[in-house]
Every structure is written in structure tokens, then in C-alpha cells.
Amino acid sequence: MRTGLKFGPLGEDAAHLCVDMQNLFAPGSPWGAPWVARRLPAVTRLASARPGRSFFTRFIPPRSLTGAPGSWGRYYAAWPEILRETLSPDWLRLLPELEALAPAGHVFDKSVYSPWSQSGLHAALRDKGVTTLVVSGSETDICVLATVLGAVDRGYRVIVAVDAVCSSSDETHDAVLGLFAGRMGQQIEVATTDQVLAEWRVAS
């Protein structure tokens, strides 16, 4: 897969959006993705390089099955240990390395895969003049996918940092990155963290 910023360097209108890099998805959790720990250094580099321009989402399960509508009820019936009535709140926190870098007001909670319909994220980004998003996080084929497609729908320029996203499934991770780079290549760019940071211009 060819990577790079084919539509030019990034500027002051760009921000880093980190998707669901929480204890809930780290190894040791029932929902743990093995690659989270391996991708964390790249995510941390993005967040620390542009701390005031980094935004974070967190996936928050319902308190009980009564708060899980429709097919979500069936979903959480298979994962009762994830419901907040039994889950320790610490599992919902960002990974410690990222929690330390998250600016106040830059963490947005959601109860579904996409962060665009209920979190206030879009309004906050627009308020900061953001029109370009560098996306990192987990999981590539679920919440990252929903985040990226929603960003495209809202007209953002979207760059997926390929070495800063991960999934529990190598097969679908690879398939989604291929979709981004190929079929959706006019609206989504794929680049490495090094490529992003080398081409992100900021005012001195």
C-alpha cells in the first residue's frame, strides 16, 4: 500500500482525533485488542506533538441492558461484564499515556460506534477551526471506520495514520485500510505517523 499526504501538507486547520484508546480495549480486558499496546507509541507521538490539537473519544457502554435499545440489547447480552453496573470505571478511562496528554474539554464520550451524532465533537472541532483530521485509535474496522466515514460525510479532509490504528482482526484491519487507500482514495489519505508529522506545518 502506498502511503503519504497526496493532497499536500497539513496546516493550522488540522487536528489529531484519537478513537477509543481506552483501558477497555487494552490487553487484559474482555474486549482487549492485542495490537493496542504496539500502536500506542505512534498514537502517543501524534498526541504529544500537537497536544492542543488532539481530541479523544471514549466508548461508554450502557449501565444495564435496559439502556441498550434494539440490537444493542442482544449485543450486550453476550457481553454482560461490559455493562457499567458491573464494570469498574477505570476500564473506561483513556490509556494512562494518553490521559496525561488530553487537554480539558477535548474528550468526547459516545455510546455507539460513531462519535458524530451525540458527543458534540463536530461543533467543538468547528469552533477550533478544524477542517482536517488525522485519525488514530481502535478498532480500525469498527469505531475508526465509523469515525472516518462520518468525518468524510461532514466534509473533513481525513488522513488515517496507518501505524497508529489497530484491530482485533488482522484480516478486516487490512481490508479496511485497503478500502480507504483504494476505493475511497479521493476522500481519505493513508500515511504513516512519520509522514504526517513531517508534513504538519505550524506557525512558529
Rank of each mutant, 00 (worst) to 15 (best):
D127E: 14
A33L: 07
L94P: 15
Q186I: 01
G52S: 10
T192R: 10
P96A: 00
V130I: 15
G67D: 07
S88V: 11
V130K: 12
W91R: 15
E85W: 03
T172A: 00
S48F: 01
L83V: 13
A42L: 06
R53G: 04
G32E: 12
W79S: 03
V196M: 11
S111Q: 15
V162K: 11
K6W: 08
L92M: 07
T3A: 07
L94Y: 14
R2I: 07
L179V: 15
R126P: 10
Q187G: 03
T172G: 00
S167T: 03
C166N: 06
E199T: 08
A123M: 05
A78F: 00
R157W: 01
G120N: 01
G137Q: 04
L24C: 12
K6E: 01
P103R: 03
V176F: 13
A191W: 04
S136M: 07
S119H: 06
V107T: 03
S119I: 09
F180T: 10
G28D: 09
T57Y: 01
A49C: 12
V130Y: 10
E12A: 15
V148A: 11
E81Y: 03
G8D: 08
L179N: 11
G73K: 06
S138M: 03
P89C: 10
A164M: 00
V107C: 01
H16P: 00
G73H: 08
L87M: 11
E81M: 09
I188P: 02
L83C: 09
L149E: 04
M21A: 09
L101A: 05
Q186N: 08
R201L: 14
A26K: 00
E97I: 06
F25M: 11
T147S: 15
E12R: 06
P103F: 01
S117N: 09
L46A: 08
W35E: 14
G28F: 07
P61S: 03
W35F: 02
G137E: 07
W91S: 12
F108R: 03
M21D: 06
S29V: 08
L197W: 03
R157E: 00
V144N: 02
P96Y: 02
V112K: 11
E99Q: 14
L95Q: 11
F55T: 09
R154S: 09
H16L: 05
I82F: 00
P96R: 01
A104T: 12
Q22W: 00
E171P: 02
F180Q: 06
E81G: 07
P27R: 10
L95M: 12
A191D: 08
D174W: 00
T193A: 04
R58F: 05
L149M: 11
S88W: 07
V134N: 03
A68K: 06
C18W: 04
T66S: 13
I159N: 12
P62S: 02
F7N: 09
D127Q: 14
V165H: 12
A146P: 04
R126F: 05
F180R: 12
M1H: 12
D90F: 00
D163V: 13
V19L: 03
W116E: 14
A104V: 13
